Amino acid sequence: MAEPDFVITLIGSKLAVPGNEFIYRGPAAECEKCKLKNICLNLDKNKKYRIVGLRNGMELDCLVHDTGVKAVEVVACPIIAVMESRKAFNGSRMTYEAPDCDKECVNFALCHPDGIASGEKYTICEVFSEEIGPCGKGLTLKKVELRP
C-alpha cells in the first residue's frame, strides 16, 4: 500500500524527530492567542501521527513548548486493533465502534487502541493470522491493521 500524503504541522522542537509517533489531543488554552495556530492545529483530534520529515531547522517561539516548535511532515499512523474475526476482511471499509467490554480483559488495550475514534471510518489493510487470547464475551478475535 502506498504511503499516504503527509501534512505539514508544527511540533515541539524536542519532539521533532523523524519516526516519533504522537496522538494529537487538541489545542491548549494558550494556543488561542497564537498567530501560528492555523499551522499547529491542523490535525484531527485524538488521532495518532508519525513524523516522517523535517521541513527546515528554524525554531519558532511557542507559548506551550519551552524550546519552541519546528515544522514537520506527519502521516496518520496505522492502528493495530482486534475485532471479531467474522468482520475482518482485507481491504474492507468499516466504521469503528468501541466494544463494550471489561477493562480487566487481557485484550482491552487491543480492543480500545490509542489513536482510534468511535464513529470514524477505517480500511482494514491487513488481517494477521496469529491467535488472540480469550475474549471475555466469547468472541473469536483477529488482530488487524487499520488506516483512516
Rank of each mutant, 00 (worst) to 15 (best):
M1G: 15
A2E: 11
E3A: 09
I8A: 00
I8V: 15
L10D: 13
L10R: 13
S13H: 05
S13M: 02
G19V: 00
N20H: 09
F22H: 03
I23Y: 01
I23H: 01
Y24I: 02
Y24G: 07
G26I: 06
G26C: 04
P27R: 07
A28Y: 12
A28W: 10
A29M: 09
A29E: 14
E30A: 14
E30I: 00
E30F: 06
C31Q: 03
K33M: 08
K33T: 11
K33F: 06
C34S: 01
L36K: 05
L36F: 07
K37Y: 01
N38S: 10
I39Q: 01
C40T: 00
L41P: 00
N42A: 05
N42Q: 03
L43D: 03
L43N: 01
D44I: 13
N46E: 15
Y49N: 05
Y49W: 01
V52P: 01
G53C: 03
L54K: 02
L54C: 01
G57I: 01
G57L: 02
M58F: 10
E59S: 11
C62D: 15
H65V: 06
D66Q: 07
G68V: 00
V69Y: 01
V69W: 02
K70C: 07
E73S: 02
V74P: 09
I79E: 07
V82N: 14
M83F: 05
E84G: 10
F89S: 12
N90R: 15
M94W: 08
T95P: 04
T95S: 10
Y96Q: 08
Y96T: 08
A98D: 10
C101S: 09
C101I: 15
D102R: 07
D102C: 12
K103F: 11
C111D: 13
C111P: 14
H112T: 05
H112Y: 09
D114A: 12
I116E: 02
S118D: 10
S118H: 02
G119P: 03
T123E: 14
T123S: 12
T123H: 05
T123V: 14
C125P: 00
C125Q: 15
V127M: 06
F128T: 03
E130N: 14
E130H: 10
E130D: 15
E131H: 07
I132R: 11
G133V: 04
P134I: 10
P134V: 13
K137T: 12
K143A: 09
E145W: 04
R147P: 00
